[in-house]
C-alpha cells in the first residue's frame, strides 16, 4: 500500500481569491454567498469563522453574528479561472486528477517515479508561490483516507495517514466522519449502538449488511481503512441538474409543479447544449426544516426534451409527501449518453 493518493483542499477558497485580488480584505472577516434575503454563505474566511459563521448558514444569521464583516457576491468566473491555474499545476505531475469542485481534487501519483510525499509537498509549495493561495494536503493510500487527512489540520495542513496509523486515527472518530454517512445513516447507525468507527470495525460484517445493505459492507471496509475507489479523471458530465431555492417556502403543489416545469426546461436546454440525453430523472425536494428527499426513475428511453423530463418529474412528485412547506426543488438528468453528433445552428 503505497502513499500515492493525495487530496488537496484549498483553504476558504472563494474568500482567499477575493483577498488575493483585493489585499485590503486580508485579515478581515470576509463572507461570500448569496446576498438576497434567503441567500446562504458559500465560503467564510477563517477570520469570519471565528464569529461562528460557516458555509451553508443563512446569510441573515451570518450578518447578525458579524455585522461588520465584508459580504461579497461570489464571482464564479474568477474562481474558475484561478481553479484552472491550480489544475494546470496538478496536470504536470499526473494525468490522474479528479476534481471534486473548484477548490478540491484527488491526485493519483502512482504513475510518477518520484516520491509521492515529496511531490505532494512540492505541489503545495507551487500553489502558494504561483497562485498565491494556501492548500491543505492529505496523503494516504486511498481516497477516503487522503480526504480525511487533508481535513485534519486545516488550514495550511499537511497530513499523512500511513497504513500503520490508519487504525489509530480512524477508530476514535465519530461514525459521521465516514464517507457516505449522512444524517440519516448516522441516526440509523447510532440506533444500532454504533457510535464510533471502532464500533463498526468490530461489528459483525453480516449484521451490517443485513441492516444497511451494500452500504453496510462499504462502511465496514471504510472503518478498516479500505477504499477501492480509483481516482478517475473528469470525463463528460455524469448528470445534468438544476435546483432552485424559492423566494419563500411553498406549500402549494401547483406552484411546485410550475417550478419543476421551469427547471426541466433549464435541464433540457443544458442537455441539448452539451449534446447528451439521459434515462434517469431525479426530483429533489428540500423541506422548510431542511430535511431532504429525492426520488428517481430510470426509463427505457433517452430523454432530452423538456416535456419528457417534466412528465417524469411530475410522476415522481406524486411519490413525495407535501405535508411540510417546501424550500427548494431540483431536477437532474443522469444515465447519460453522449452523442457524437452536434446540431448546428442558423445563428446564435
Amino acid at each position: 500500500m503505497e502513499l500515492d493518493i493525495i487530496h488537496l483542499d484549498m483553504d476558504a477558497f472563494y474568500a482567499a481569491v477575493e483577498m488575493k485580488d483585493n489585499p485590503e480584505l486580508v485579515g478581515k472577516p470576509v463572507i461570500i454567498g448569496g446576498l438576497s434575503r434567503r441567500g446562504v454563505v458559500s465560503t467564510a474566511s477563517y477570520q469570519a469563522r471565528n464569529y461562528g459563521i460557516h458555509s451553508a448558514m443563512p446569510m441573515h444569521q451570518a450578518r447578525k453574528l458579524c455585522p461588520h464583516g465584508v459580504y461579497l457576491k461570489p464571482r464564479h468566473g474568477r474562481y474558475k479561472e484561478v481553479s484552472a491555474k491550480i489544475q494546470e499545476i496538478f496536470c504536470q505531475y499526473t494525468e490522474l486528477v479528479e476534481p471534486l469542485s473548484l477548490d478540491e481534487a484527488f491526485l493519483d501519483l502512482s504513475q510518477n517515479d518520484r516520491n509521492s510525499l515529496q511531490l505532494a509537498k512540492e505541489i503545495k509549495r507551487r500553489i502558494k508561490k504561483e497562485v498565491g493561495l494556501v492548500a491543505s494536503v492529505g496523503v494516504s493510500y486511498n481516497k477516503f483516507l487522503a480526504k480525511l487527512a487533508s481535513d485534519f489540520d486545516k488550514p495550511d495542513g499537511f497530513k499523512v495517514i500511513s497504513p500503520f496509523a490508519a487504525e489509530k486515527i480512524l477508530f476514535p472518530l465519530d461514525v459521521s466522519q465516514l464517507w457516505g454517512v449522512g444524517p440519516q445513516t448516522e441516526e440509523k447507525l447510532k440506533r444500532l449502538g454504533l457510535h464510533k468507527v471502532k464500533d463498526i470495525a468490530q461489528a459483525d460484517k453480516h449484521f451490517l449488511i443485513r441492516k444497511l445493505g451494500k452500504k453496510g459492507y462499504q462502511l465496514y471496509n471504510l472503518a478498516w481503512g479500505k477504499d477501492e475507489r480509483e481516482v478517475t479523471p473528469a470525463g463528460p458530465p455524469k448528470s445534468i441538474g438544476k435546483e432552485t431555492t424559492f423566494r419563500f417556502d411553498l406549500d402549494d403543489k401547483a406552484a411546485v409543479l410550475e417550478n419543476l416545469k421551469r427547471l426541466s426546461q433549464q435541464v433540457a436546454q443544458r442537455a441539448t447544449k452539451k449534446g447528451v440525453k439521459g434515462r434517469t430523472v431525479t426530483v429533489k425536494i428540500k423541506y422548510e426544516d431542511f430535511t431532504e428527499i429525492s426520488r428517481s426513475k430510470t426509463g427505457e428511453r433517452y430523454l432530452e426534451a423538456q416535456e419528457q423530463i417534466y412528465q417524469v418529474a411530475e410522476q415522481l412528485l406524486e411519490d413525495i409527501e407535501l405535508n411540510k412547506k417546501i424550500r427548494l426543488a431540483g431536477i437532474s438528468l443522469s444515465t447519460l449518453n453522449h452523442s457524437d453528433f452536434k446540431q448546428l445552428k442558423l445563428f446564435d
Binding site: 457524437d340 453528433f341 452536434k342 446540431q343 448546428l344 445552428k345 442558423l346
Partner: peptide
C-alpha cells in the same frame, strides 16, 4: 453537409423552411 438545407413548395404561396444539419463529431 454543413450548410443549411432549404425546403420550398412550388404552388402554395411561398413557403420556405430552412433546417440546419447535424455534424458528426
Amino acid at each position: 453537409p454543413l450548410a443549411p438545407g432549404v425546403i420550398k413548395t412550388k404552388s402554395e404561396q411561398e413557403y420556405i423552411y430552412v433546417i440546419m444539419p447535424v455534424r458528426s463529431a
